[in-house]
C-alpha cells in the first residue's frame, strides 16, 4: 500500500481551500506523506495576502455564517497546521512566471517546481487528487 498522497490544487476559491487542506491535513495526521502542487488559481491558497481573503463562489456568500457557526478553522490556520504536520507545498514555476510572482509572495517553507517534479512524486502515490 502506498503511503503517499499527491494533491493538485488548481483553483483558488474559499471552498477549494477547504477541500485541499482538509484532505491534506487528515492524510498527514494519518501518517501519510503528503505533497500539494499549487498551480494557476491554486496559488491563491498559499499567497501571503491572498489566502486571507479567498472568495466564496458567486451566489454562495450566505455560507459565511455556516463557516462561523461550525467553528471551521480559517485558511491561514489550516495552512499552518498542514505545514506543521509535514505537508509539503510545491508552487508551480511556470504559473508564477506567467503571473509575475516570486517565492517571497508565498508562505514560508514552500518549494518551487515544475510539472515533472510533481509527476515524479505522484508516480507511486495513491490516491492522487485534483481540486
Amino acid at each position: 500500500m502506498s503511503n503517499k498522497v499527491a494533491i493538485i490544487a488548481a483553483n483558488g476559491g474559499l471552498f477549494d481551500a477547504y477541500k485541499v487542506f482538509n484532505i491534506a491535513t487528515a492524510a498527514a495526521a494519518s501518517e501519510k506523506e503528503v505533497e500539494i502542487f499549487f498551480t494557476f488559481e491554486g496559488l491563491n491558497l498559499i499567497h501571503k495576502q491572498g489566502m486571507h481573503a479567498l472568495d466564496m463562489p458567486a451566489g454562495k456568500e450566505h455560507f459565511a455564517e455556516g463557516f462561523a457557526k461550525a467553528q471551521v478553522p480559517t485558511v491561514p490556520q489550516l495552512v499552518e497546521m498542514a505545514q506543521e504536520l509535514g505537508v509539503k507545498f510545491v508552487a508551480c514555476q511556470m504559473t508564477m512566471d506567467v503571473m509575475g510572482l516570486t517565492k517571497e509572495d508565498f508562505v514560508d517553507g514552500i518549494e518551487v517546481g515544475g510539472a515533472v517534479t510533481f509527476l515524479e512524486y505522484a508516480k507511486d502515490a495513491a490516491p492522487t487528487l485534483t481540486f
Binding site: N22, T25, A29, S30, L85
Partner: peptide, 14 residues
C-alpha cells in the same frame, strides 16, 4: 468539543 473536521483527528494524532 466544538471543533470541526479535520481538527479532532489532528488533535488526536498529537
Amino acid at each position: 468539543k466544538g471543533l470541526a473536521c479535520p481538527m479532532p483527528i489532528v488533535k488526536t494524532k498529537k
